[in-house]
Write a protein that binds this DNA or RNA. Structure first.
Lengths: 232, 232
DNA sequence: GCGTTACGTCAACACCATTGACATAACTCT
DNA sequence: AGAGTTATGTCAATGGTGTTGACGTAACGC
């Protein structure tokens, strides 16, 4: 079950310092991994580099995570955790709370775009994910929906949030030279498109840079309004 | 500009057969690459395996694509192309046409989930992408929107489509053992969640398998309705 | 049919994840 | 306090990866 949450054991007991003196832990490893990804992009998260950054042998990481994929899931869970810190849902205003929840998740992804892409689409089954789902469902229950509708609406909600988050994180997280390519596309390359073959694209040239902005908040509000308008 | 569309030259001239007799071309390479990914997952798209499948030296691919990333973008463009085949927009019913467009794009991604994830978030700048944008803008212009609003609405539209497509493709494209993990999560693991720590999650257990279904079409209709209701 | 050169091939480089054997520090139990 | 167990960090090796430069030859333009 490679998709799994499980670090190797649930808890470590013996803390033996590494050759260079640092003491390893799942959290410390995730910390360092997140820092690596934030700094230099997803490509720089390799077991070897991670080991070096930790001052440990790369293979030591395998005592905490079964594979690099497991580590990616843990990064994802860390992002969800970051989303949830300081977030206290207000059941009396479920709609505002859910919106805040969505915006926070989106911003977590924007803060760590490259990490978000590593795990953005996976069901992590790790603790923070469970907490997030429980929180979301609670708000929808408070809104008056039954358990079944709460699940359906939460599904639409979280997919919308994650979809936009990932899409925008993908742009955000490109390496500089790629980014210049992708973003510049709207200004430079597409500006030269011919009027005969692509008339509408040609006509829209001055407005194409709008494509750089995010459509997230508008889409989110749209969705919340639709949920609110749903029968209880 | 690694993000770029550019194959190495625009056109090949000399067609020299490979050692094993096959004749290479950008299209033939993309064909084979797509087949590889469809069959065995994204992990099986390596230059070496691709070379072997083509009956050519791996490095021959570099005469057609500058890097593996370039090849990924070409796969993405192929998917957009697949979306557009047999699609003829009907300007007199822009809303139905746009819906059809979105559904087609979504289904292309579902048909090749693993390929969709390789490029789903990139601006390819390749021909089919340009055609798709032009078509979408044309429909929104026909709906009565000015060029600027057409761009804004197209942006929201395509992000919604791609976001859901990618999210669902991610589930679809998991390797079997991962998939069992992710999908099973809703049934098995989450079913055992404790009532005290996560009351709402606990309560919703019987309905969690709903999370497996896609929220795409509902979200799409929602968005189209909102666009339709926007001022011209 | 000659000359140019595009393109397929080969070999090499520097990386990568993962694993099994090993040593030893850190714990448990008496 | 001392012995025994074992968790955990280290080492070395395996078989993969993308990419590149040199090289020859077949395919084209003339």
């Amino acid at each position: 079950m490679a998709g799994g949450a499980t670090r190797v054991p649930a808890e470590r007991k013996r803390r033996r310092p590494t050759r260079s003196g640092t003491v390893l832990s799942s959290d410390a490893i995730v910390d360092k991994a997140l820092a690596l990804v934030d700094e230099n992009g997803a490509d720089s998260l390799t077991m070897r580099k991670l080991g070096q950054a930790l001052g440990a042998d790369p293979s030591a990481v395998y005592r905490y995570f079964r594979s690099v994929e497991d580590l990616h899931l843990a990064l994802g869970d860390r992002l969800i955790g970051e989303t949830m810190t300081d977030f206290t849902p207000d059941p009396t205003d479920w709609r505002a709370s859910l919106r805040d929840f969505g915006v926070r998740a989106y911003h977590s992804a924007q803060r760590h775009p490259r990490a978000a892409l590593l795990s953005g689409f996976r069901v992590t089954r790790l603790p923070n994910e469970q907490r997030a789902i429980d929180t979301g469902l609670g708000l929808l229950r408070a809104a008056g929906f039954g358990p079944r509708d709460a699940v359906r609406h939460y599904h639409a909600f979280i997919d919308t949030v994650l979809g936009h988050a990932a899409l925008d994180a993908a742009v955000q997280g490109l390496r500089p030279e790629q980014r210049e390519g992708d973003e510049g596309a709207w200004g430079a390359v597409y500006a030269e498109v011919s009027a005969e073959t692509y008339p509408h694209l040609h006509e829209a040239r001055p407005h194409l840079p709008l494509m750089r902005d995010s459509a997230f908040e508008r889409a989110l509000d749209l969705l919340l309004a639709a949920i609110d308008a749903s029968p209880r």
